[in-house]
Amino acid sequence: MSSFFNNVDWYDIWLATLDTLMMLGGSMLFTVLFGLPLGVILFLTAPKQMFEQKALYGILSFFVNVLRSLPFIILLIVMIPLTLLITGTSLGVAGAIPPLVAGATPFFARLVETALREVDKGIIEATQAMGASTWQIITQALLPEARPGIIAASTVTAITLVSYTAMAGVVGAGGLGDLAIRFGYQRFQTDVMVVTVVLLLILVQLLQSLGDRLVIHFSRK
């Protein structure tokens, strides 16, 4: 048993796990920060919605589609100059967060838009009839009603981000993915590969079950 894991430096694994968690936490934070408002704007300006704005919706939608159609590995490389500008480095956790956010935000925004569309129009209308302002409709009716959907969207996004962080390892971001590639793939240390994969798997499982629990908790239907 111990001979199978003899390439594994558990301290390195621990550091890499921390890096992955930091990348995930940091990028998730900014993804929600940018993606939630973007999703709300997409929803509101879409055809036949409260603030139908064909031009604005068209531009935002195009921008989102472009970012989403770009393979993440390409985005990582294309983003390097911009990342340098924002964080001063294209390496490590800090260097990975801008491309992760750029990759996940459009994805998350679309999911938020879809979740908001699921909200019964009658509820928006009832809230309007009460004399609510647009801001009140968004904060008091739309977002609370779409909360389970937005939580589910966050779960999917977080899991996507886990796989993105692994990919970010390729360009020197660190983390479990980096470990898997450098040791597991390039030096044929299968044991390191197995350990990192298992850890990533556990992380994904944890995120999914946490998300599911929250969705159930907030679904009153």
Partner: peptide
């Protein structure tokens, strides 16, 4: 002006 609806339109949350 109050309003009530066929499908009630209560906030489920």
């Amino acid at each position: 002006v109050g309003m009530i609806f066929q499908h009630f339109n209560l906030l489920s949350s």
